[in-house]
């Protein structure tokens, strides 16, 4: 009886409705835009039949092709570099002993998350110009690397915190030197965290618009910049198609990163 009442107690009237509303709000726009990307006609009101025509148009668009290549080059290099820096930092922060000023270092590493993106964006712009680096792919890469560091750092350090130091002690106890203990024990155990961090950094770089918009020079147009340019001109079904593609890319990477982070955690 008591248990029944107590369970009922957890059910607040209307909370389920709000939850459903929340999910509808989060998903409806994306689902609607994806559905319309397959509509053969330009019309909103009429369903002109299923068609991949808009996708064909997107793939044939040379500007989109160029932007895709730029986006991938930038995302791969920025997330690789950011993951490396974050990995080193995480090992020092989690595995090294506590030191004076550690909180300050933690804030510094996460600073790119704390500063409003628009400020990082305009700051980077005037900074690059002031120190004489001309805007282009390189400036985007640098800015993305910095912005991605905390995104790579958080899953890596979380994973590292979850690994008790007994494992490294055991490795050292069994005659492994510091490098062998990292190479054969810690690194394989951290791998899901590293992959997860890399993927998040990759997505963040691939998706970034605000910073890229400020520091991308001519010829460094990325996919989000290209989409923005298209939206500015007017809403075309092509936008639906390319949005759906990017949406899908994000979903795939995030789901993968989630699965990798979960299955190996035991």
């Amino acid at each position: 009886m008591m248990a029944g009442h107590a369970e009922k107690l957890k059910k607040f009237p209307g909370f389920l409705t709000v939850t459903i509303g929340c999910l509808v709000l989060l998903y409806a726009p994306m689902i609607v835009i994806s559905v319309y990307s397959f509509n053969a006609t330009r019309s909103i009101t009429k369903w002109g039949g299923f068609s991949l025509g808009w996708y064909a148009k997107v793939f044939a668009n040379p500007e989109i092709q160029r932007a895709t290549v730029n986006s991938l080059v930038i995302a791969v290099s920025a997330s690789t570099l950011a993951t490396l820096l974050a990995l080193l930092a995480a090992i020092a922060m989690v595995r090294g002993r506590a030191f004076r000023g550690q909180e300050g270092v933690y804030v510094l590493i996460n600073l790119p998350l704390l500063v409003p993106e628009i400020i990082s964006a305009v700051g980077s712009l005037i900074f690059f110009l002031a120190i004489g680096i001309s805007l282009g792919l390189m400036t985007v890469m640098i800015a993305h690397t910095i912005f991605c560091i905390p995104f790579a750092y958080l899953p890596i350090s979380a994973r590292l915190q979850g690994i008790e130091d007994h494992y490294e002690q055991a490795a050292r106890d069994l005659y492994a030197n510091a490098w062998q203990s990292f190479r054969y024990v810690l690194a394989p155990m951290m791998l899901p965290g590293i992959v997860s961090g890399y993927m998040l950094a990759f997505i963040i770089s691939l998706d970034d618009f605000i910073i890229t918009n400020m520091v991308a020079g001519p010829g460094a147009t990325t996919l989000p910049l290209a989409i923005y340019g298209m939206v500015r001109i007017g809403f075309t079904p092509e936008i639906n198609a390319i949005s759906t593609l990017m949406l899908l890319a994000s979903l795939v990477v995030v789901t993968l990163s989630y699965l990798i982070g979960r299955t190996k955690r035991n």
Binding site: H166, Q169, A170, A171, L174, Y175
Partner: peptide, 20 residues
């Protein structure tokens, strides 16, 4: 001597078997 240079081995409380 560091642990890896001592001919002494340990059975850990929670075993610390390498899960991978």
């Amino acid at each position: 001597l560091p642990p890896n240079k001592r001919p002494i081995n340990t059975v850990f409380q929670h075993y610390a078997l390498f899960p991978h």
